[in-house]
């Protein structure tokens, strides 16, 4: 469904991604794992059009989306749930969720989708009329996921959904990711929490210094020494 072919990108003159190729098939859960500064977030920002690709190409459902601006990438059916939640702080939870359905294709299905999504997040439902900034970190993450789902994306991308959250909340987040995947949405997820992610994922790519150094079935990578070494040096 999604294909990155030899993509390079970066900020200004600094190239961060080198020759990255990966693919996500329909219905899969794919993860990109790697240490801090390895280029995970840059990969996602390139995919979603927030930064431009300097070489290579990206296709989605066989259409070229390499140089599309971010808002058009969303319209094609790819939604990124950004790192550190990035809610609209001075809007209510409901308004945040409404913004998620901004894309034309999602607007028409708004009512029905809202019900589906809120069923998944009972806590969010209780807080619809609170300011987003008044929520706790875990609740904000749930709102961010709900907001992303409202776009009815075909491919949902998570950037470090567990970042800065308490362990109990982290496992809740992963439960939600699992449910989303089971409902048939294709998922691409970037995480530090390697073990939990690998349990959810079908396939994984390992990224180091802006290059993909390894890929394979999630199960196989689980006990791989390479990953342990990248993270813990042992």
């Amino acid at each position: 469904m999604l294909r990155m072919n030899n993509v390079s990108s970066g900020y200004g003159a600094t190239t961060i991604l080198h020759d990255v190729s990966l693919e996500v098939k329909k219905g899969e859960v794919v993860t990109i794992v790697g240490g801090n500064g390895a280029g995970k977030t840059t990969t996602l920002r390139t995919l979603s059009g927030l930064i431009d690709t300097s070489a290579g190409s990206i296709t989605f459902k066989d259409e070229d989306i390499t140089h599309l601006p971010a808002h058009q990438v969303v319209n094609r059916g790819i939604t990124l749930i950004p790192e550190a939640r990035q809610l609209f702080p001075e809007m209510t939870v409901l308004e945040n969720i409404q913004m998620g359905a901004y894309r034309p294709a999602a607007k028409s299905r708004y009512e029905q989708r809202l019900e589906e999504v809120l069923a998944l997040f009972p806590r969010v439902k209780e807080r619809l009329h609170q300011q987003a900034e008044s929520l706790s970190g875990g609740e904000q993450q749930m709102v961010a996921i709900a907001r992303g789902m409202m776009a009815c994306p075909e491919l949902l991308i998570f950037d470090e959904p567990s970042l800065g959250l308490a362990p109990i909340v982290v496992s809740q987040v992963f439960d939600v990711v699992k449910k989303i995947a089971e409902s048939g949405t294709t998922v691409l997820i970037v995480e530090q929490n390697v073990q939990q992610t690998l349990k959810v994922a079908d396939r994984a790519y390992v990224i180091e210094n802006g290059r993909i150094v390894m890929d394979g079935q999630a199960q196989e990578l689980m006990g791989n020494d390479h990953i342990r070494k990248a993270y813990l040096g042992i």
């Binding site: 530090q192 929490n193 390697v194 073990q195 939990q196 006990g223 993270y231 813990l232 040096g233 042992i234």
Partner: peptide, 19 residues
């Protein structure tokens, strides 16, 4: 330090430290 359970858990998640 890198063999410390709490540390492994903080970095890699709970299952890793169990493993």
């Amino acid at each position: 330090v890198v063999k410390n359970e709490a540390v492994i858990e903080a970095y890699l998640g709970k299952e890793a430290s169990d493993a």
